[in-house]
Nucleic acid binder design. Structure first.
Length: 997
RNA sequence: GCCGCGGUGGCGGAACUGGAAUACGCGUACGGUUCAGAACCGUAUGUCGAAAGACUUGUGGGUUCAAAUCCCACCCGCGGCACCA
């Protein structure tokens, strides 16, 4: 598109001279960070006339003590969007804070023998310095830290509000207990049965805990996601986490007693196939031998063993199911009134459903496994249904039901099967046929085999299990068919044959197909299932289908049968959730104290509001205790309190809160961090909330994001906030891997230290490289060579702007508007459009690529580059490389009032004297000219038989006829046409013309 | 096992609603510059082939004038959930 200039001019030489000088990133970056801070450039006002407020939220870091490359990815890259939005006229708040309570501080403190508070505060100071080196436009005046009493006062206050509403309650529960950390873990913090932090195997323990009633909000947490601008994957993860399942509660009477066992099932359609029942070891009916279990001793022994089992043991056992039958106990299947056995087995979990199940081995793989092991009856009640996707049922055609047989006929001594090869269609089938009224199936099969192939020496072997259904379109009759198919096995004993009628031989031939090839060559959606049965590989069929052997419900489809059968046995419809209430108690020191007091007389009483915050006392010994009590219990003086109700002696709650409570509302505090009357003023919340864009890691899909949504819904219901969803927009970022494509870790030795990279290349290069690596939601491996490309690019920008400034005295040409609209200007405007659109969709990598293309063309056509072009270019670059673009912008285009001293002269004192900086970061984002972008000439691609053979420049308005005429006159095209007639011409205006020969 | 995401040069990755696959960057090679190296600049760079040309987006099939993109089956990688009744 552009012509290369081949003449080496004086100016080109100058470029070369300049390009040898690398820009001093460190000096420039430090200088501008100081100036921006001195000018309070990023301290965001609550209201600016004519500008809309917009908060870009990132997940506040845990102050581990050192910033890693992941922090840069999480904070420096979104800063691109922040700066872009700001230049687009929004009043953008980009807040930062610290999620500073939590276990690591305690562990580090124990190790280093210092107080967690001191350790944490030191880390916060150090990390603040590191964060500032990013040059991100954080508003440091609004910093929030969860360990400050002014902050956790409100965390405690919210707890009290939830307690008042009955949403915070105390209950005995089986909790996940980490024996090493000596604390309770949320389900979410248990990974593969091990503690998320220390990897020791988690055991179950019964403890009294404070809990939040998050299950009350399950339904709203699912439904309210609909309107959120979130990644679908995140929504799905939450949905699966909440795990809503609709089912039925069904009572099973126990024979000869007044007792009954209630089960929850989502598959009431399989009730006729329930051939036994299982109680979980925790089931209350097992506690005392109320049922009169004859082998109660054995049962108790089993229960004891099951409770001790932890995750590792269960893995070691290969998850093989175990159980004990309750001898002398029989239940009645309410559907068919049959007597069935009752078992106790630990594959049934106490906390799921009712803690007891009806077992349907034919249609549940776990029950199947158990039934096989203990020889329990298996009764099929759902027949599979297969749809032939190559020949699916058609809308509008009538559906005909028929009973058919699939005859699987084995050769007398070879491993091959008799099939029909159809003449009209290109396929083979087994011998299939309809079963006539009153005819027996084996007989029907034999008749079909004889009629269609002539073979007569046939032995019927067996029927392959219950029927299956096949749905397909029968083309020859123009009807949809629903066939009830019985797989029948036959064996031919000899090749004795009768003649076959011509009617049959006209349509098909008999052929033999080897066993291995049957799967690939025999047609029919139900064939794979029949072959599995032929092999004798039995398994549970867990999908829906058509009911069989289910009394009056036989023939019904699973979905309808579910509710019909439920009605029949008077089952109660119920919704069940996987989600459980949120246990927030932690037996640790370094957390927000739970503001409750236990009075011997009045029980648990809330601390009154005016006594908040309940401050975390300084403690010398914060080692965890072995008895499960919090280290805070050692602070006897602190723990002793007066009952808020009767003033009598009482004890404080010594547990602290899960840190997910702290982080459930931190973003609200950003809007009003110094408010001592409220957690935030209503006015300010109205100005900033809910958060329109929250950028963070996918690891928070199910924990932090869900908890925070729950919290905000509670606050909304209590009328404390006027929004019911905290984050209307959410984007996930990927993970930066080491150069070896592995997760970065000290033990692997593949950790990239951002501080070192900044020293080497500068913050601009590091943040821009991170943005350039790939799509932001994808992350990817750090490539030590790749960062050089960005470094070179920024150096070329520096050199190019310097070079242009040396040959042109820009300041004397006031705003020269270029008159010639050339290709370069067109590219410039296209780039403005692309960079803007790409930033908006977080596709920073392609935005940077288009900036590179623009610079390449600038260099090739440097004489056409005007001052306006350069200014625009710097503005486009500004979000990505904020320091360099500010430096160049001020140096060459800054107004006299905002002139910044030369970098060489800059000193702290001088920075203070700068009156007002017209920062590039508050300039208006360039606009593009839509008309200019629209090309009037394009490359028409010429295809012959779909292959590209030529291309011609033509005007946009060209008609198909004109285009074809021009194209057909080209020699190149003629050559490929070879005088053959053109069958068809496909013309896509603005793109291509395709000649089909 | 279930759910989700992905698989494109030597590498990171581009490619709109199906319409020129491999943009941009890295790397490599050669050339320039240099006493020399680094840095920098230029040219080339999917594979096979001397060339014409043919082939090429995990594999196999399908739909279409046209498929990285849509459909089906399978393989591999990553992430989440996991005896959830």
């Amino acid at each position: 598109m552009f012509h290369k200039s081949c003449i080496l001019s004086m100016s080109d030489l100058l470029i070369m001279v300049n390009s040898m000088v690398k820009y001093n990133s460190s000096k420039i970056e430090k200088k501008w960070q100081k100036i921006w801070q001195g000018q309070k450039l990023y301290e965001t006002k609550d209201k600016i006339a004519g500008k809309n407020n917009y908060m870009v939220l990132v997940e506040f870091p845990y102050p581990s003590g050192n910033l890693h490359i992941g922090h840069w990815y999480a904070f420096a890259v979104p800063d691109i969007s922040v700066r872009f939005l700001r230049m687009n006229g929004r009043n953008v708040l980009y807040p930062i804070g610290f999620d500073a309570f939590g276990l690591p501080a305690e562990n580090a403190a124990i190790k280093n023998k210092i107080n967690p508070r001191d350790w944490t505060k030191k880390n916060i100071m150090y990390m603040t310095k590191q964060l500032k080196s990013m040059g991100a436009s954080f508003d440091w005046s609004r910093t929030v830290s969860t360990i400050e009493p002014e902050y956790y006062k409100w965390t405690q206050w919210m707890f009290l509000k939830m307690f008042e509403k009955g949403l915070a309650y105390r209950a005995k529960t089986m909790v996940n207990w980490c024996p090493k950390d000596k604390t309770v873990l949320a389900n979410e913090q248990v990974v593969d049965g091990c503690c998320e932090r220390c990897d020791s195997s988690v055991i179950k323990k019964e403890l009294e805990q404070w809990m939040f009633r998050i299950t009350d909000y399950a339904e709203r947490l699912i439904n309210d996601m609909q309107g959120l601008n979130w990644p679908e994957t995140t929504k799905l993860a939450q949905k699966n986490w909440i795990g809503r399942s609709e089912g039925v509660l069904i009572d099973f009477k126990i024979q000869d007693t007044g007792y009954k066992i209630q089960v929850f099932t989502t598959r009431s359609d399989t009730l006729f196939g329930a051939t036994y029942m299982v109680l979980g070891p925790e089931h209350p009916l097992l506690k005392n031998n109320e049922l009169g279990i004859m082998n109660y001793g054995k049962v108790v022994e089993y229960i004891k063993k099951a409770k001790v089992k932890n995750y590792e043991e269960r893995i070691a056992e290969g998850k093989e199911k175990t159980g004990v039958e309750l001898k002398g106990v029989k239940a009645i299947n309410p559907a068919n009134k049959e007597e069935i056995s009752v078992w106790v087995a630990d594959y049934v979990l106490g906390h799921v459903g009712t803690g007891a199940i009806m077992a349907v081995p034919a249609h549940d793989s776990r029950d199947f496994e158990f039934a096989k092991k203990y020889n329990l009856p298996i009764c099929h009640v759902v027949a599979p249904i297969f749809v032939d996707y190559t020949n699916p049922p058609r809308d509008g055609a009538s559906t005909i039901k028929r009973k058919t047989v699939q005859c699987i006929v084995k050769h007398w001594n070879e491993n091959k099967y008799l099939c029909l090869k159809w003449k009209k269609y290109d396929w083979q089938t087994f011998i299939i046929g309809g079963v006539e009224e009153g005819e027996d199936m084996a007989g029907a099969g034999m008749r079909e085999i004889r009629e269609e192939t002539g073979y007569m020496d046939i032995r019927f072997v067996k029927q392959l299990g219950p029927p299956v259904y096949a749905k397909y379109f029968a083309a020859h009759k123009s009807e949809n068919r629903l066939s009830e198919v019985y797989g029948l096995c036959f064996e031919l004993k000899s090749d004795k044959k009768l003649p076959v009628s011509t009617k049959e031989t006209e349509t098909h031939d008999a052929v033999w197909i080897e066993r291995e090839k049957v799967k690939d060559f025999v047609r029919g959606a139900e064939i794979p299932e029949l072959l599995v049965r032929l092999e004798g590989k039995e398994r549970a069929y867990i999908d829906g289908g058509i009911l069989i052997e289910s009394g009056e419900f036989s023939g019904m489809d699973s979905e309808n049968a579910k509710w019909e059968i439920a009605k029949f046995v008077r089952g109660e419809r119920k919704v069940n959730y996987r989600l459980h209430d949120w246990v927030i108690s932690r037996q640790r020191y370094w957390g927000t104290p739970i503001p409750m007091v236990n009075c011997r007389k009045c029980g648990w009483q809330p601390v009154s509001e005016e006594n908040l915050p309940v401050k975390l006392p300084l403690l010398k010994n914060f080692m965890p205790t072995d008895d499960g009590r919090s280290p805070l219990a050692r602070a006897e003086k602190w723990a002793g309190a007066k009952c808020p109700k009767c003033n009598g002696p009482a004890e404080r709650e010594t547990d602290t809160m899960d840190t997910f409570v702290d982080s459930s509302w931190y973003f609200i505090r950003y809007v009003d961090p110094k408010n001592f009357q409220k957690f935030a003023s209503e006015e300010k919340m109205k100005l900033w909330l809910p958060v329109p864009l929250y950028i963070g890691g996918a690891e928070h899909n199910t924990m932090h994001l869900l908890y925070s949504r729950f919290f905000i819904k509670v606050l909304y219901d209590l009328n404390f906030v006027d929004f019911s969803e905290p984050f209307t927009g959410r984007k996930n970022h990927g993970i930066i891997l080491g150069p070896d494509f592995q997760k970065m870790s000290k033990s692997r030795g593949n950790v990239i230290d951002p501080d070192k990279e900044v020293v080497k290349y500068g913050a601009d290069t590091v943040r821009m490289y991170l943005a350039f690596m790939g799509p932001y939601d994808q992350g990817g491996p750090w490539n030590s060579g790749g960062i050089n490309g960005i470094y070179r690019f920024l150096n070329r920008v520096y050199s190019f702007v310097n070079y242009k400034s040396q040959i042109t005295n820009y300041k004397q040409i006031p705003n020269p508007k270029p008159k010639i609209r050339n290709d370069l200007e067109r590219l410039l405007h296209k780039t403005i459009k692309k960079v803007g659109e790409d930033i908006e969709s977080l596709r920073y990598n392609t935005a940077i690529s288009s900036l590179m293309i623009l610079l390449n063309e600038f260099e090739k056509n440097s004489e056409k580059v005007s001052i306006e072009y350069l200014k625009i270019f710097l503005k486009l670059l500004a979000p990505f490389a904020p320091h360099l673009s500010e430096e160049l912008y001020q140096q060459f285009f800054g107004s006299p009032e905002s002139q910044i001293p030369n970098p060489k002269q800059i000193q702290n004192s001088k920075i203070q004297n700068i009156k007002q900086l017209n920062s590039i970061h508050f300039e208006k984002w360039p606009e593009y000219d839509q008309k200019l972008i629209q090309e009037n000439i394009f490359e028409l691609v010429v295809q012959i038989n779909g292959k590209v053979r030529d291309s011609i420049e033509v005007t946009v308005e060209i008609s198909e006829k004109d285009a074809a005429e021009i194209v057909l006159s080209r020699e190149k095209v003629k050559k490929y046409l070879e005088n053959k007639p053109v069958k068809k011409v496909i013309y896509i205006p603005g793109r291509l013309i395709n000649f089909v020969l």
